[in-house]
C-alpha cells in the first residue's frame, strides 16, 4: 500500500514546526504542508483529480488562514463528492464558540486548541478511520 500522509494547513512557521514535531512523535506518515487556504484548496483539487486524495489520513486545519479561511476549506471538502469523507481535525487558538459549533456540524473529528499534544493526536488518529 502506498505511503499515507497527513495534510497540515498552517500559515504560521512556529505553529507549523510545533505541529510537525508532534506528528513525527506519533506516526511515520508523510507530512504535506499547505501554507494558506489557496494552496490547500489547489492541492486538494489536484489530488482529487489525480486520485491521490485517498492517501490522506488526516487533514489538520487551522481556521485563521490567509486568502481562503479554514472554514471555507472545510466546506469545500464536505461539498466535494470524492473528498467529503476526509477526516478533518481543526487546530486553532481561537475560542470562538460559533466557529466551533459550525465545525462540529460540518463533521470534524476533533476541535483542538493549540498547542496540540501527542496524546490528543494519537486519539484523533485512532478515531479518524485512518488506513492503518
Amino acid at each position: 500500500m502506498a505511503q499515507s500522509f497527513i495534510l497540515l494547513v498552517e500559515d504560521n512557521p512556529d505553529d507549523m514546526f510545533l505541529a510537525c514535531r508532534i506528528i513525527r512523535k506519533v506516526c511515520t506518515d508523510e507530512i504535506l504542508v499547505a501554507r494558506d487556504g489557496e494552496e490547500a484548496s489547489e492541492l486538494l483539487r489536484r489530488m482529487e483529480q489525480e486520485g491521490g486524495h485517498d492517501r490522506i489520513r488526516l487533514v489538520l486545519l487551522d481556521l485563521k488562514l490567509p486568502k481562503i479561511s479554514g472554514l471555507d476549506i472545510l466546506q469545500f471538502i464536505r461539498q466535494n463528492e470524492r473528498l467529503c469523507q476526509l477526516p478533518v481535525a481543526i487546530l486553532t487558538s481561537s475560542d470562538n464558540e460559533t466557529d466551533q459549533e459550525t465545525c462540529w456540524e460540518l463533521g470534524v473529528v476533533d476541535y483542538i486548541y493549540k498547542p496540540m499534544t501527542a496524546d490528543r493526536l494519537k486519539s484523533v488518529l485512532s478515531r479518524g478511520g485512518g488506513h492503518e
Binding site: 504560521n12 512556529d14 505553529d15 510545533l18 514535531r21 485563521k64 487558538s93 481561537s94 475560542d95 470562538n96 486548541y113 493549540k114 498547542p115 496540540m116 499534544t117
Partner: peptide, 18 residues
Amino acid sequence: VSHDLRAPVARLEGYCTA
C-alpha cells in the same frame, strides 16, 4: 486579549513542552 494573544501564548506553551 481573547483572540490575538491566544495564538502566541499557545506557541509559547508548545515550545515549553518541546
